[in-house]
Structures are given as structure tokens and as C-alpha cells.
């Protein structure tokens, strides 16, 4: 019974994770400028990747596999802001100006 429940839970995680990944991809295409696209990439990097990896962890149960999945997840969460920040700073130095809404604060 509990096995079936965990199975269902992991399916839900995998499917929602995939959904958030696609949402991030759509955002990458739809959003108008580079700096808004960072946010779309953030959606796939955090919740998309996180939910898919959690779904896989639930499938794997308690084993070395789970630890490797946790490591992948943790590494992703640590590096993705660093990469995004480096990209934003490089883009600013490369004279890419963010397109802002008209009445900025």
C-alpha cells in the first residue's frame, strides 16, 4: 500500500517537474529581453530540476543512488545562481541594457 502511494507521489513529482521545465522553456522563448529570460531559466533550474530529481529519489528509495541524486540537486542549486550572476554581470559589461517597464521606481 505504502509502495503504491510512494509510486504515485513520485509520478506526480516527475510530471510536475517536467511541466515546470516546459514552462521555463516557453518563458525562454516568450519573454522579451535577456534579463527577463533569466527568470524563466530560474524556473527550470530550481523547481523543474528539483521535482524531477525528487521523483527519482522516491523511486530509488534509501540507497547510494538517492545520495547521488541529492548531490546532483544540491550542486545544481549552488551553481545555478553563480552562473546566472556571472552571466548578468558579463551582459552588463557587454553593454546589454535591461528593457524596463516605462514607469520605473
Amino acid at each position: 500500500m505504502t509502495m503504491a502511494a510512494i509510486d504515485v507521489l513520485s509520478w506526480i513529482c516527475l510530471v510536475t517537474g517536467g511541466f515546470f521545465g516546459i514552462v521555463g522553456g516557453i518563458g525562454l522563448l516568450r519573454l522579451p529581453d535577456l534579463f527577463s529570460r533569466f527568470h524563466a531559466a530560474g524556473v527550470t533550474d530550481t523547481l523543474g530540476a528539483g521535482l524531477i530529481l525528487i521523483g527519482l529519489m522516491l523511486q530509488a528509495g534509501w540507497s547510494l543512488i538517492t545520495i547521488k541524486l541529492v548531490l546532483i540537486l544540491g550542486f545544481g542549486l549552488f551553481t545555478s545562481p553563480t552562473a546566472t550572476h556571472a552571466l548578468a554581470k558579463a551582459a552588463l559589461h557587454g553593454k546589454v541594457k535591461p528593457r524596463l517597464s516605462r514607469k520605473g521606481t
Binding site: F35, H39, S80, P81, T84, H85, A88, K89, L92
Partner: peptide
């Protein structure tokens, strides 16, 4: 990094 990690806000500088 916490700001960047939450989607919707990205720290630039």
C-alpha cells in the same frame, strides 16, 4: 545568491 535562486528576482551587481 538567495535572491538569484528565487525566480522573479536576479541580483546583478
Amino acid at each position: 545568491n538567495s535572491i538569484t535562486l528565487t525566480p522573479g528576482t536576479v541580483s546583478i551587481d
